[in-house]
Design a protein around this nucleic acid. Structure first.
Lengths: 350, 350
DNA sequence: GTGAAAGCGCTAACAT
DNA sequence: ATGTTAGCGCTTTCAC
């Protein structure tokens, strides 16, 4: 609109503030950073000067000397994207779960004014690029959410000595901190509830058995059933998708037509199972009781609403944030894992 | 583990590379930044030195001089959080929609190695903090997703002269770029489909009428119906939530018991409407045809799967990213709005 | 307790 | 086409 360029008004610097306050840059710096050795009177004057000038520290300049960026990467790692697929990356992002993670992380990081920068790793290039970025001062640490069971990222990151925290235990043991839910305990909760409800023919649709979550939920279920004197509960392996749940449920119905209680290893599959049960003319929970896992938004929108095992995702994410921050502070920090207790959320399906 | 501290091996700098290559820092800088004026032979030598040393530019140092950070803020702005609510922020994050936005943004930003940093604004403090952050060189631009109809952020940002792009047209006119979908066109698509299907008693459940989306979808629907010679279609105002959809549908059933076609202004409400219709003994689509809006994941998991108006969210988000980048490049850039055409996704509900 | 001065690693004139 | 030089805004010894 206007014909001439405005000379880009530079924001105030420490230097400005120092002049206004009549002190040196160093003193202002001390005040800004809350270092003790400052005379209360001087501090007062400096604070007024800061307010008057509207000074805000320049992050780049600070990072350059402190070698800290005040930001952590929130990395979502997915299995290789097949060239023929949609043009858009990020299947995880469309799961409400991701939002809960973000929410939990922000709750911890925000107040400390550390910002999460989002990164997606789903190709060899992005994978290499991530490590490259991390090798330099771009972020102080990494929060990794990996979908791929045999992801190499956990190892790459620990080798690069980048403070890292994973969501869920890595498939292969690694020297890295993580948070997770007590999967076996959650499965036990479900099994106990089904038994207490009076179900006689109880089965399970498990997750993929090459994932820790898939394994543990099945193990927990089996152990609990054994304790109830029923060591031979039928299980069908699913793949954690809604469609997979449909297929598995149909299969289960063939193998155990009189099944009256099913523990499904996640809500998405449970949603599919519910649909198949309805189509087969069975009522839930009267004829078949169904329990899911995750307490995703799907659990709420299901008909009937799903009884499910709740992972305290927000709490877990918050803990991840605390852990990276701790690792950043204290690079010598030993590797830590924090396991959260799940709870059973009883709705209508069981 | 080890008793003594390792002296923190500093990453290679331009200086290192320059020495290895036997040239000056400036030349290495030129090679790194792809400036033309470099002799091909020298360039070759420098590139080898870069590879040999494993050099990666230090972002902080670069930002300090260029006054660019190579990152943009992805700001989610929600209405004031009430003190009594959950302890965790971010209702938007748990909607799959958010993930689609992230996905679209990453598709554009990633290749240019610009990173989105996540920010949530839901209190006066975070709001003030955002502006403060932006006033300095923390991010180059802002992508704003606002849920609050009377958000003051759009104005604050434009006043602060921060390159900004909004998702959806702001409630109050403002000098700011945005992307949006042609809401009226989407509503027309739905109305036409319902009419073409042979529905005789068509009604709508609208969104909140104090939002542009709520208004436009209703207007588009009304106009289309008028063109079909039915200017008096009944409408009930909803609030865009699943529960709101249930309430509105129940209301509608009382007012128009023989309704046989409903355009619901978003999928979440449509999901609620579906449940109420089922409970009332009506079959969908045989007795009542239902069309939603958004093509969210809810649309797919509904029973029956929802016919709905699809917003090309990923494309829209990608365009947002392109727009900020353009505004960052060319600060004089005039304000732009890009409107995307919706499409009707026909499934089973209509 | 406070100031002076030396860089952090990089880009951008400017000079050659 | 390449090298020299001067900072960008901040923290941090080191004197005082």
């Amino acid at each position: 609109m206007s014909g001439h360029r405005v000379p880009a008004p530079r924001p105030p610097t420490l230097e400005h503030v120092a002049r206004v306050a009549g002190v040196s840059r160093a003193t202002v710096s001390r005040v800004v950073n809350g270092v003790r050795n400052v005379d209360p009177d001087i501090r007062e004057v400096v604070e007024q000067a800061i307010a008057a000038t509207g000074y805000v520290p320049n992050r780049a300049a600070r990072s350059l000397v402190t070698r800290r960026t005040g930001s952590v990467a929130l990395v979502v790692s997915e299995p290789e994207r097949h060239a023929g697929g949609d043009s858009f990356p990020g299947q995880v992002f469309s799961d409400p779960f991701f939002g809960r993670v973000v929410s939990g992380i922000l709750g911890v990081l925000g107040p400390r004014s550390v910002h999460p920068v989002l990164m997606l790793v789903d190709t060899p290039e992005t994978r290499a690029g991530l490590v490259t970025h991390l090798r330099q001062d771009h972020v102080d640490g990494v929060l990794l959410i990996s979908i791929d069971p045999d992801d190499t990222l956990p190892r790459l990151l620990t080798e690069a000595a980048v403070p890292t925290v994973l969501f869920t235990r890595p498939t292969r043991p690694a020297q890295v901190s993580y948070v997770d839910v007590a999967h076996t305990e959650g499965a036990r909760l479900a099994a106990d509830h089904l038994v207490a409800r009076g179900c006689r023919r109880i089965a399970t649709i498990s997750g993929p058995l090459d994932t820790p979550a898939g394994q543990d939920r099945l193990t927990g279920f089996r152990d609990a059933m054994a304790k109830h004197g029923r060591p031979h509960a039928v299980s069908v392996e699913g793949n954690f998708t809604q469609h997979g749940g449909e297929v598995a449920m149909a299969d289960l119905l063939v193998r155990v037509p009189d099944v009256d209680g099913v523990f499904v290893a996640n809500d998405l599959m449970a949603q599919g199972a519910l649909a198949v049960l309805r189509d087969s003319g069975r009522r839930v929970p009267e004829d078949v009781a169904v329990i899911g896992f995750d307490d995703s938004s799907a659990a709420l929108s299901c008909r009937p609403p799903l009884t499910t095992v709740r992972q305290p995702v927000e709490d877990m994410a918050a803990e991840m944030a605390r852990l990276v921050l701790a690792h950043v502070e204290e690079p010598g920090q030993r590797v830590t894992s924090v396991i959260f207790e799940p709870t059973l959320v009883v709705r209508e399906s069981a």
